[in-house]
Design a protein around this nucleic acid. Structure first.
Length: 331
DNA sequence: TTTAATGGCGCG
DNA sequence: AAAGCGCGCCATTAAA
């Protein structure tokens, strides 16, 4: 079956071209060209032109009223989509450097949305996995594949990771099958096994859908609402879309609430202590700071502590922090 | 030259 | 009938 775009024309996206590349080598070449063009056009050519003449820096704008979940959006330029997943892309991230005498500090929340799912659902097994500081994808793999933790293969863990992310997005068995390239019946069996092993999550999903339908909105741990006008639509596709939003918004939105609290806590502390450290970027679950070397020993542990401590959920908030000459090195 | 729509793809 | 959440920006195309 040929994949179509929303307007009905045949899709030539990366997924399709990867498939076609099996028979037509030029597709591989086209994909390489697309990837490099993307980096050149969006970042390498563009960012240097956006350097402010007075400051010698690029300055983003954060919008607080764009994302319906409460996330910030970064624009002109967007600094929340700087490449990181490929080696070529990471060379662009390396261009984000600290001034002389300072380092870049990057601090991000670990598995924040899955932790929030554990908190919201109260699922015993998932809460326990986090309280024991286990690798959550490995834990899921062990449960879904009926395997001792130590015997989980890398492929089983990869599958479990797709399942975990899929849950956050309200993915169906069809979507899971598509993503993993397996039969729908197999995907259905994995999901059934997941919900059998994490019954609290299953109940939470059900409860959330029902509540959304009853009230017409869902909310975050801190009370911000997302209204869902399509949740009772007669149109099945619209209704299903609203249900996925209902599942995702409390998790994505609570994560957004948490990092906003962290931004406030960190900036307050910097000002109280009259430090020269600067909070320079937010990337959804990550804060980036410029820290003079003389302040590093104080700032790194305190930023970690402040981020961990912004809220007391039923699950620990873990922060991974690193530093370096540039943003890539700090990861 | 600007605006809007489209398809695609960078990130969390 | 559709099938995975949230964004912003690129090149292309067509039209104003």
């Amino acid at each position: 079956m040929i994949k179509k775009t929303p307007s009905g024309s045949p899709s030539v996206d990366e997924e399709v071209l990867e498939k076609l590349a099996e028979d037509h080598p030029i597709c591989k070449t086209l994909l390489e060209h697309r990837g490099l063009s993307k980096l050149k056009g969006t970042y390498t050519d563009k960012l240097p032109r956006m350097v402010n003449a007075k400051t010698g820096r690029v300055h983003t704008t954060y919008s607080q009223s764009t994302a319906v979940t409460g996330r910030l959006a970064s624009l002109d330029p967007n600094l929340q989509n700087i490449p990181v997943r490929t080696v070529e892309g990471r060379r662009i991230r390396e261009a984000f450097i600290a001034p002389p005498g300072a380092k870049i500090l990057s601090a991000d929340y670990s598995q924040i949305e899955l932790r929030i799912m554990a908190h919201l659902s109260g699922d015993k097994s998932l809460l326990e996995a986090f309280s024991k500081a286990e690798d959550v994808h490995r834990h899921t793999a062990a449960e879904v594949f009926d395997t001792p933790l130590g015997d989980v293969t890398s492929e089983q863990r990869r599958y479990a990771k797709v399942i975990n992310f899929g849950l956050i997005y309200g993915m169906s068995a069809f979507g899971l099958a598509q993503n993993l390239g397996i039969e729908r019946s197999a995907a259905q069996a994995y999901m059934a096994k997941y919900f059998q092993r994490y019954p609290g999550v299953a109940a939470y999903m059900e409860r959330t859908r029902n509540e959304a339908k009853e009230r017409g909105y869902v909310d975050t741990v801190f009370g911000r609402r997302l209204w869902l006008p399509d949740i009772r639509s007669a149109n099945q596709a619209r209704r299903a879309g609203a249900e996925r939003q209902a599942i995702n918004a409390p998790m994505q939105g609570t994560a957004a609430d948490l990092i906003k609290l962290a931004m406030i806590a960190v900036q307050d502390w910097i000002e109280r202590e009259m430090l020269a450290t600067k909070l320079v970027m937010q990337v959804h679950d990550e804060l980036v700071l410029e820290v003079p070397e003389a302040e590093l020993a104080r700032v790194k542990p305190e930023v970690e502590r402040l981020m961990m401590g912004v809220a007391k959920l039923d699950v620990p908030l873990v922060v991974d922090a690193g530093m370096g000459e540039n943003w890539e090195e700090a990861h």
